[in-house]
Design a protein around this nucleic acid. Structure first.
Lengths: 117, 117
DNA sequence: ACTATATATGAACACTTGTTCATATGTTTA
DNA sequence: TAAACATATGAACAAGTGTTCATATATAGT
């Protein structure tokens, strides 16, 4: 877990490096953060999430709306569900997907602000 | 640009699908959004951005701090710079990197809130 | 029970992406 | 101007990822 070879800093003293590291989130947290953003890092998934933001939808309607294969969509929905970004419920023959919580929306909006400069 | 084959909706009427689509951001915007999140979707880059959030740093100090190769770091810094998430300035022999703007920080915090549940 | 419909899943494949290694560029100091 | 140092970059490689195709599962209607 600890570094074996002490890295050689150029300007930073070892003490400065330590306090700097303390001000950062845990490595584990940063890994989780990267994993979260991976979900948003694919255009198909972003489009899925964006559509579900307007209203809940069943798989075929979602596929038709976005113009993608049912299979491709299903695979992505599974990934999004595992990440707890979407949830689903069955209604007869059909399974309806919706956003899991409000966090997705706020992450989304934050990103859009940046993109739209 | 337009779909040739009208998709067959299950519950959605064509009119509903249209209004729904109008409430979504442009496809182009969603692509840009995915590209933005791609920057945060790698743990190395997240760690770089996290470190730069505490203070500006030169490449070697950053490499030492994160325990990664100078080469790997340099590659990632180039990617982050192209995405306009970091900027750099030369100071003598050394090149110092810092965050490009405050947006990075807010995107970061938004994600952390979700990760920390 | 059989058929049609809606969704899920496994395997294969192409494509992308991050790291490493070697080397190039650019700056300072002797 | 040579040597030392800091950073950048190209090519090669390994690992990861998204789509497609075929097929499986599950529910509804006849």
């Amino acid at each position: 877990m600890t570094k074996e070879n002490v890295p050689s800093f150029l300007y930073l003293t070892a003490a400065q490096a330590r306090t700097l590291a303390k001000r950062m989130p845990t490595e584990e947290t940063l890994y989780e953060l990267a994993d979260l953003y991976k979900m948003f890092a694919d255009s198909t998934r972003v489009r899925i999430l964006s559509a579900l933001q307007t209203q809940e939808l069943c798989v075929l309607d979602l596929a038709a709306l976005l113009g993608i294969t049912q299979s491709a969509l299903s695979h992505q929905l599974r990934i999004l569900k595992q990440a707890k970004l979407v949830k689903s419920r069955r209604e007869g023959k059909v399974i309806i997907y919706s956003l899991a919580d409000a966090h997705v929306e706020s992450i989304f909006k934050q990103g859009l602000e940046h993109v739209r400069e």
